[in-house]
Amino acid sequence: MSTGVSLMLTLLFLTLIKSVPIVYAALGGVISERAGVVNIGLEGMMTAGAFSAVVFTNLTGSPIIGLIAGLFFGAVLGFVLGFAATFFKVDQIVAGVGINLVALGGAAYGLVLIFNQPGASPQVTQLAPEQLLPQITVAETAMIVLGLLCAFGLSWFIYRTPWGLRIQACGENPRAVTDAGLNPLRLRLYAVVASGALAGLGGAFLSICEVNLYSDGMTAGRGFIALAAVIFGRWTPWGATGAAVFFGFFEALQYVLQGRISWLPSDAMQALPYLAALFAIAGLVGRVRAPAADGVPY
């Protein structure tokens, strides 16, 4: 096999792997924003997922339980944001910023409290680390497949089921939902909890599927990139998934190019996915329309 082909294969597999956490978080963003809550806290929910997955894997020795813990603690933070954003009519952006501070600080605090070492956790059991293909593990493959199933399921849920219809109505005009005899605040809360669960799963992927430990700042803004993916994907499950893969590609590209282009050092290339997200949201001038009540407390 020539270097060119193997390089392309590396890029392909790496794109798949790097996309996974962004896909989960972006799907979380879609469900939350479709219900009318902007979830800036995705980053914090990923952090919570990543950290708790490691803690519970360490505790139980079972990375599967770690994965479930990641999902659960993401959902817990989703509940906090959802509750604040609905029943307390909190400004969603400000509350999301608060969630991020709590999660990042909490994980750092927890590292010292639980493992007595700042910066990074000790190594734990990785989830199914056997190589399935040369570049990709069993766990990673499973999570890729699960991510696609989630995109499919969410799309089906939003457009085909009664609950999806109500969630859509919530994000467009919550008063209409009230008029129909339903409680839009509760619907929004459920949506944000689901959003947090998905983001938590994405975070857990980072810590126990891709590697086998948690380190401070390991989510590196992927939750924010996922928000950009939601916009770039026009608030649809498949659109957001596609956009997440697009941003994942740039993250993969950065790894593949490292050390290969002498005039472009790795520090500068780390900016690639963020630049891509910046250009993506700026390039949509006048062509996107958010759900009408997105970000508006009810």
Partner: peptide, 17 residues
């Protein structure tokens, strides 16, 4: 109090689909 981006039947049947 209608959902402008949904269809007529979706608006009318909302909550009692």
């Amino acid at each position: 109090e209608l959902v402008r981006r949904l269809r007529v039947w979706q608006n009318i049947m909302l909550g009692r689909e």
